[in-house]
């Protein structure tokens, strides 16, 4: 049995706002195996980004706080770790790339200085070696004329180039896990293809595990081995990419997949899920998807179904697939 590189158990992250407590991440369980690409999909507000920020403990506090659960990185719970210890993990064993590369690069420092900071800190390289390392990293992510770009500022680069710089920076210490939060959402399709190609090569050649957070089902189908589908702060389905796309169990997953227009087929009308995502609150009852679900039953409005294993590592949080249904109704 391969040990997961990261395991999340019952994670609860809440935001304490004027309008009350918002359970952005509401009891999430997931794991990532070494060398695997895990897709985390869902629509805005489903908690996918907050989950990823929680892993590195980057949730802004206040108003956010991890209020429960464990995050085991190679077997060690990192939730109780102090800031100083977290800093040793961030960028070294676990690295992250964000959606908007302009806001996550410091405009006052050159590209080289920013990469060198990370490698000098974590790998203890000399200034000269660090610079060489930085140039090497830029070359590796396919930046043309890396010797010159290393001395340029972020604003001198295009969106695709900045995202490459972010990737170069995040892999510069050879992390075991790379968390990519919507890494290609701000980019054009032809540039997206370049970046996805780069991420895939990293995963295949270096065995870096990747947690890919996205709303784009096309990107998921293309990149991921396993998929976690989230809705309103909870995992509603988890399975291999084949299971999720070919045999989706949860009505939300099914609706989501059918809503997407495809290029390789023509349909008169798109499927659509009625209504919109619920506003999260502490007092929600029953299945979060019940108000929009076409298969809703009485039990769905009253009790929350559990994430239960169906077959072959394919699990789903839905009363339709839960054997305890009869007991729950009684």
């Amino acid at each position: 049995m391969i040990q997961p590189i990261l395991t999340i158990e019952g994670l609860h992250t809440r935001f304490f706002t004027e309008r009350g407590e918002i359970p952005a991440v509401d009891g999430v369980d997931l794991f990532i195996l070494p060398g695997e690409v895990l897709g985390v999909v869902g629509e805005s507000g489903c908690g996918k980004s907050v989950t990823s920020l929680s892993i590195l403990k980057l949730v802004p506090d206040p108003p956010g706080k991890i209020v429960g659960g464990r995050i085991l990185f190679k077997g060690r719970d990192i939730v109780p770790l102090k800031e100083k210890e977290m800093r040793r993990i961030r960028g070294d064993s676990v690295a992250m790339i964000f959606q908007e590369p302009m806001t996550s690069l410091n405009p006052l420092f050159t590209v080289g200085q920013q990469i060198m900071e990370t490698v000098r800190l974590h790998l203890g390289l000399s200034k000269k070696d660090a610079r060489e390392h930085a140039v090497g990293m830029l070359r590796k992510v396919g930046i043309p004329r890396p010797e010159a770009v290393v001395d340029e500022y972020p604003h001198q680069l295009s969106g695709g180039m900045r995202q490459r710089v972010m990737i170069a920076m995040s892999i510069s210490c050879n992390p075991e896990l790379l968390i990519a939060d919507e890494p290609t959402t701000a980019l054009d399709v032809t540039i997206q293809a370049q970046i996805l190609d780069l991420l895939r090569r990293l995963n295949e050649e270096q065995g870096t595990a990747v947690m890919l957070i996205t709303h784009d089902l096309g990107v998921v189908a293309e990149m991921c081995h396993r998929v976690v589908v989230m809705y309103a702060g909870k995992v509603v389905e988890e399975g291999s990419v084949q299971d999720i796309f070919k045999n989706p169990l949860h009505p939300y997953t099914r609706g989501l997949i059918e809503s997407v227009p495809r290029m390789n087929e023509t349909r008169e009308r798109l499927h659509s899920i009625p209504g919109s995502v619920p506003i999260l609150s502490k007092d929600m009852q029953g299945c979060r998807f019940a108000p929009r679900c076409g298969n809703v039953m009485d039990v769905c409005r009253e009790a929350l179904p559990q994430l239960t294993l169906q077959e072959n590592q394919h699990s789903c949080r839905c009363w339709l697939h839960e054997t305890r249904r009869e007991e729950a109704v009684v």
């Binding site: 997206q192 784009d216 096309g218 189908a221 990419v241 084949q242 495809r262 290029m263």
Partner: peptide
């Protein structure tokens, strides 16, 4: 041709 080929399809078998 390049633009169309770059669009990821939501189908793992395709």
């Amino acid at each position: 041709q390049a633009l169309l080929s770059a669009v990821p399809e939501p189908d793992p078998d395709f």
